[in-house]
Amino acid sequence: MFAFIAHVIRRDLSLALRRPADLVAPLCFFLIIATFFPFGIGPEPELLRRLAPGILWVGALLSTLLSLPRMFADDFADGTLEQMALAPYPLGLAAFGKAIAHWIVSGLPLALLSPILGLQFDLPPDALCVLFFSILIGTPALSGIGAIGAGLTLGLRGSGVLLSLVMLPLCIPALIFGSGAVDAVMTGISPRPYFFLLAAFSTGSIVFAPWAAAAALKISLE
């Protein structure tokens, strides 16, 4: 079972590495969003520092959204998804592996990039650190919930917009706890409760969402 999940992850990672441009594009999008906000709201450091957690978190959410439609679409188009559904393991495990792989190529780089973007907003070092960890812990939830959305909208016209409609409301807790953690540390409160809640939400999503995603995929394959 674990070997199967590992195969799925390794396969998705090696496929992702063959197309590095697709990996970098969402990161550039993240960078651009973060850079554009100061143009809109002015360069006062005090204001920017105040808004940074929210902006960076929403940016991470939107960048994740960019790479989600392709989570299953390519495999659906060339018949690989069908073969996965016929593998002697539950499809939920394959979806789980794919969600993990998605997080490794999307959430992890976003987390690594976020402290650098935080510098643009003049965040203090401890806030940068909390920002990094909050995105690191929170993005698995986005990959998990995103897997459901991607499964439900697979092969539909306008699936990108639909995906965001379906997925964004469900991601509100991650956004609140994630940006809240950064906010907390800047106002001098301990970010720990936020981290616990965020970790709980992420764990729940990444464990349960793939099964819902698998149910959605089975419908799409019928």
Binding site: I148, L152, P169, P173, I176, G180, A212, A215, A216, S220
Partner: peptide, 28 residues
């Protein structure tokens, strides 16, 4: 058939999520 089932999955996932969303919003 697909439309009904996809809708059903979405509703059930959302219903599980609503208390969590409500909690997070009131926390926030």
């Amino acid at each position: 058939r697909r439309s009904d089932k996809a809708g059903a999955i979405l509703v059930l996932v959302s219903v599980v999520n609503i208390p969590i969303i409500y909690f997070s919003v009131s926390w926030w």
